[in-house]
Design a protein around this nucleic acid. Sequence first.
DNA 1: GCAGAAATGGAGATGCGATCTCCACTCATG
DNA 2: CATGAGTGGAGATCGCATCTCCATTTCTGC
Lengths: 264, 264
Amino acid sequence: MTSSDKTCDRGEEEADTAGASGPLPVRPLRKDAERNRQRILKAAAEVFTERGLEATLDDVARHAGVGVGTVYRRFPDKASLADALFEERIDALVEMAEHAQGEPDAWAALVSFLERGAEMLTSDRGLRQILMFAAYGHERVGYARDRMRPAIGRLLERAQADGQVRPDLGPTDIPLIEFMLGAAAEYTRHVRPTIWRRYLALMLDALRPARDSFSPLPEPELSADEMIVAMHSNPLSRHVLHKAPEIRNRPTARRDPSARGNTQ
Amino acid sequence: MTSSDKTCDRGEEEADTAGASGPLPVRPLRKDAERNRQRILKAAAEVFTERGLEATLDDVARHAGVGVGTVYRRFPDKASLADALFEERIDALVEMAEHAQGEPDAWAALVSFLERGAEMLTSDRGLRQILMFAAYGHERVGYARDRMRPAIGRLLERAQADGQVRPDLGPTDIPLIEFMLGAAAEYTRHVRPTIWRRYLALMLDALRPARDSFSPLPEPELSADEMIVAMHSNPLSRHVLHKAPEIRNRPTARRDPSARGNTQ
DNA sequence: GCAGAAATGGAGATGCGATCTCCACTCATG
DNA sequence: CATGAGTGGAGATCGCATCTCCATTTCTGC
């Protein structure tokens, strides 16, 4: 599946198709329609980035100032929208991995990759969900993974060959570290979304084969209060807890003690 | 709220209450009922531990070999069951923190705390959700947190005073590290639930003020295949994606190209 | 044994919220 | 202006988890 058969993915490619009798003339959208399409994409980017994929298409529509109907006209379903939306993000991720090769210093290359990757991952809830939790876009993600694997391998091996990174690390450790940082960011996203930098710094210290001191940590620790807020601002989706449906009439007192109240 | 007004929490305390005219005689459960109560608790422990709180009370009931009705007779709702269930777990966590103080070596004390804490956290999805995602039992969790904070503080300060831990760490770093390990375990739970030990070892190296070499990592890295499986075994809850309702009749082809097919 | 209280199971009522449809209307476009 | 592409948003539909209800079964005290 090449993805474009699933998405109403119309870039700029097929501008007019002149008078050709090609199979799909695809007239360009009317001007207002195209404008709405862009609005939807923009709104979706904002909403999914901030609140993740649990945002509703109704939310997206409202944010875009259009009706849901309009969203559904342009994108057959939520998956298509997400897919269209994260295509560029994922490509950016891959490109970044390949680009990091260019850095002359092996350690700097690895650090830059870790840092920029974490930046992307921690600043975009939707992307995180797509990458970490097989949500939508399997093909795209699989493709990204296949492209990144060798890039990461080279990055790591080069740093190890240089003696800049401990030799007992393997390529899969890198994404897992990024995921852990992503988890930290997710967790603290309402209090201090940048705390991950602190833990990345810590991790980087851990990656070195030896050190004679600790490198300064870029972020202050979470204060006790921030910690408390963080714990409370991660309510498990109401779906997991399935919010008890308001006040259901609870006619008979449910505790069994009461059941024995009236003797017999 | 003292929790016990919410839970049908009947321990062994009130055995019979003789002939007293006390307000709540609370006759003991019938033998079969008590046996079922235990079964439910046991089943809930297993189910919640393994699958987390998204497990249904129907699941618990089935696992216990009783009907849902029976579960609801004993525990007014899911929260009560979870609360009753995790009381002991959370107490164990607190006790562990306080117990770690006993360890003569400051570094060993901290390590033991981190390790045993992570063990608990990584082996119990339900506990993780309760601690990390304000799910149920707020009071209990708050209490645990208040008890643990000073214990952790002492643990850390002692190790720092000894020069065994870098001085730029603060007490909130400890739980956050545990949470990151928890996230890693969550992520790899179907492939290699113990991989967190690898990252704990890495983190421990990072915590030291200086080192002249890396300490051996206890777990092999994830293989590329394991990584792929991990990525695919974390489907975002179908609620987040809201599974498209099977094949909904999709009468008109939805792609707009088709809309212009009949040359208007 | 037996009477009757206690306990049970599990089908279904209830509520909820997300997805997607439908169509009377609006308004670009030629 | 005439026409049909485009719109919005109320509501149909659906799936699912929670909790209820009561005919039936099981225990217990006498």
